[in-house]
């Protein structure tokens, strides 16, 4: 359990560095370190499927972030109300920690009460679906309808992005496209 706390502290430090870094590139790299720590946390909690997905998606999202935002100038707005901001942040964090400490006290130990549904999945999953990976048998057989809806969500996202790009893409056809990315 000690390594879990070390990883959590590492992730908090990475998040603070990502917020405070002046350079956009180092901020994005620190965010990638946070994602890596989260992936290792999932491995310690014995969820390799989630760990693989987290690592891959975090890496890919990171590259997209770098590629899409590195050359554009984001204006840094540092207002002078640092006293007010600090008080708001401290009070919010204090409230959150107090409420969380009261809520999480009644939480059962990690993985201790095995629910009826999950017990059925673990016992009958191999016999009923033939898949040795329980996660695959759940997300693609017992709960396949959820996966279909998730695919629908991704499809909608792609359609949305493409419909935004399409307008500017039409405008670009008349102009000469300058090849000044990647130098």
């Amino acid at each position: 359990m000690v390594e879990l706390y070390i990883l959590l502290i590492f992730m908090i430090i990475g998040a603070v560095i990502a917020l405070e870094a002046k350079d956009l590139l180092s901020s994005v790299v620190a965010l990638g370190a946070v994602g890596l720590g989260l992936s290792m946390t999932f491995i310690i909690l014995k969820a390799p499927d989630v760990a693989i997905t987290q690592l891959v998606v975090e890496t890919l999202a990171l590259i997209i972030l770098i590629r899409a935002t590195l050359k554009t100038d984001l204006p840094f707005s540092i207002s002078g109300r640092w006293f007010f901001n600090t008080i708001v942040v401290v009070s919010f964090v204090a409230t959150f920690l107090t409420v969380a400490a009261k809520c999480l006290k009644d939480l059962p130990v990690f993985g201790s009460p095995l629910m009826r549904v999950s017990a059925t999945y673990i016992k009958e999953g191999l016999l009923q679906t033939g898949a040795t990976n329980v996660v695959a048998s759940i997300i693609l057989d017992y709960r396949a309808f959820d996966t279909l809806c998730e695919a629908t969500v991704l499809f909608t996202a792609v359609v949305g992005v493409m419909s935004i790009v399409r307008r500017t893409g039409r405008k670009k056809e008349n102009q000469v496209i300058e090849e000044n990315d990647e130098q």
């Binding site: 890919l60 997209i64 590629r67 899409a68 679906t129 033939g130 898949a131 040795t132 695959a136 048998s137 693609l140 057989d141 396949a144 996966t147 695919a151 991704l154 499809f155 996202a157 792609v158 992005v161 493409m162 935004i164 790009v165 500017t168 893409g169 990315d181």
Partner: peptide
């Protein structure tokens, strides 16, 4: 495991093509 590998194939086609399309869109945008 019956249809599970086929469903995996379908999801991978969909997710891979979708994310590549989003990336291309960001690059062109």
């Amino acid at each position: 495991a019956g249809t599970i590998p086929l469903l995996n194939l379908a999801i991978s086609l969909k997710v891979g093509a979708g994310i590549f399309a989003i990336f291309v869109a960001f690059v062109l945008l």
